[in-house]
Design a protein around this nucleic acid. Structure first.
Lengths: 151, 151
DNA sequence: GGTGAAACCGGATACCT
DNA sequence: AGGTATCCGGTTTCACC
């Protein structure tokens, strides 16, 4: 069930934490007009309710040696066999995201590699392990990624 | 220039912060065998070098009232006119990510909306403001998103 | 770059409204 | 549910190696 009542103070807190995950409870309090402990309580509740799923640092993949980003569309080769593709590819570390999608293809992946050769190798592994065909779209430039969308 | 020398302690720190952006310097120290202040220095340096681009909370969009995720492929209608599509759509808040891509289409967007009707409205706004045609792929289910990929 | 100590500030909790 | 007071642990800075 979608426990929908997320009221405006909680939304504000979520928005602030989405754009600065290390903001202190004190600063969140100043921004929302609440005391530190009231904010503290609310954040813990938001974590428990699963509205905050976690916290992460955004890493510069290009500088880290993974300058190549691509989207891989996936279509099962044999429609009669059980489709457990997400399970089969779960341990491939280059895969950042995995969605199932509507349309002519079944899944969409977002992947990161060091070089075109590494991407080629990755595509081979995906095809082998999941018995699928792939269609790859290379990212030329990233304007922005994972901007907070809270309304 | 890509200042490539990111050695193993820094990589470890980046990996830990990518999966827990609120981890304390004390705990990072325990995990890396360094003192709190040494980790502190390293993290500040990683932030300044731009290897850490920021920190964010991961928000549950479905529970927040934005259960619909979609990818929108974009193609300019008039190839002769200046292509400033990313600038023109920058202020549309439903757009979470914007990439330029190789292939038959020019850009790829990831968007979040409350309902199919809101998606329809969003697509209209994108087409109007940027003079483009769109092709939309709806996400049926998200297995995982933004998993840390550090090697 | 690293350590360890000291001052300071934020997080966590108990208690009261 | 929110505020106040308190305690403890984390953050930050600095002198030294």
């Amino acid at each position: 069930m979608t426990d929908s009542a997320v009221e405006s103070t909680d939304r504000k807190i979520l928005q602030l934490l989405a754009s600065d995950g290390r903001m202190s409870f004190t600063d969140l309090g100043k921004a929302t007009g609440l005391s530190t402990s009231a904010v503290h309580q609310r954040v813990k509740r938001l974590e428990q309710r699963g509205l905050i799923q976690g916290y992460g640092a955004t890493v510069n993949h290009a500088e880290l040696g993974l300058p190549l980003t691509a989207f891989v569309s996936i279509r099962p080769i044999d429609p009669s066999q059980p489709d457990d593709c997400p399970d089969r590819i779960r341990d491939i570390t280059e895969i950042e995201s995995c969605w199932s999608v509507a349309g002519t293809e079944a899944y969409l992946l977002k992947v990161r590699t060091a070089t075109p050769a590494a991407l080629e190798d990755l595509l081979g592994r995906i095809r082998n392990v999941a018995n699928v065909s792939t269609r790859t779209t290379i990212v030329l430039s990233t304007y922005y990624e994972n901007r907070p969308v809270t309304d």
